[in-house]
Design a protein around this nucleic acid. Sequence first.
DNA 1: TGTGTAGATTATAACTATTCTAAAGTATTA
DNA 2: TAATACTTTAGAATAGTTATAATCTACACA
Lengths: 137, 137
Amino acid sequence: MNNNLNFVQKLRISGLRPTKQRIKICEILFCGKETFHFSINDLSKIISQKTNEKISLATIYNTVHAFLAKGYIKQIAVNSEQNYYDTNTTDHHHFYDEDKNQLIDIHDNEVEPVKINRKIPGKKIKSIEVLVKVQNN
Amino acid sequence: MNNNLNFVQKLRISGLRPTKQRIKICEILFCGKETFHFSINDLSKIISQKTNEKISLATIYNTVHAFLAKGYIKQIAVNSEQNYYDTNTTDHHHFYDEDKNQLIDIHDNEVEPVKINRKIPGKKIKSIEVLVKVQNN
DNA sequence: TGTGTAGATTATAACTATTCTAAAGTATTA
DNA sequence: TAATACTTTAGAATAGTTATAATCTACACA
Ligand SMILES: [Mn+2]
Ligand SMILES: [Mn+2]
Ligand SMILES: [Zn+2]
Ligand SMILES: [Zn+2]
């Protein structure tokens, strides 16, 4: 459980109080060997499965937004149905499986760097994202 | 007004009856010299401005979906706030101005083709979209 | 050219992801 | 320990979208 101390520090550093709920969310988001993609609904279900106690949707939204603001997770634009989040915060692109509604990482060695030969005056680039939609053939 | 005949034909060919409302929507979507990006809300406002008669939201949604299914317009994934549509149906990528909530076309000569060196078994690629988010600097 | 009918429009209700509210609870600091 | 600021929570509100069902219209054909 020295991970718990890590989470407390992580939360402290970003100005968040280390409450029971936030630590539980940290455990789910950051304890796995693998990064993963989730919607708020997904996360809520995972919490229910792994815990007897429930965490309210409002707290899940608030915490996810706080982590997003701090850069602990990323937001992925897929469609207008719902937001998707990613615990892999490195720059990378995605496949989106339209049949399974699932995001799949594209690793850097699997895609050529995207070069944009144009600038918008007065604007700076915040992110470059490639989304490859796939479906059953 | 020989554009009207075009629209009637266009609608007929795709199995849609050329109703007054659909022709009005055609005029707005396809009469301009330039292609453009819009949300349903944008389109609804444009209709109100250019017409005394109102078209119900349900009809706007239905018509936009019909045109989308027929490939007369494209859908662009930006975020989960709302859907964006594009009257430019060619393959192309976008800047998204986060301050103005506005899409800007990236032309083919402004970006290198995106090469994905990986396949998902049993899946075929439906689209490859690059979204470059920009903000004021 | 009138008429029946399939298809279209509309107002409105329903749905769902997200955000807001305000009351009750908790962590922190003095 | 007590005061304070922050957090959680249930539930209400909001907003984009979709479904419903009554009314209307385009048009094939008599
Ligand atoms: Mn929606
Ligand atoms: Mn929404
Ligand atoms: Zn990812
Ligand atoms: Zn475009």
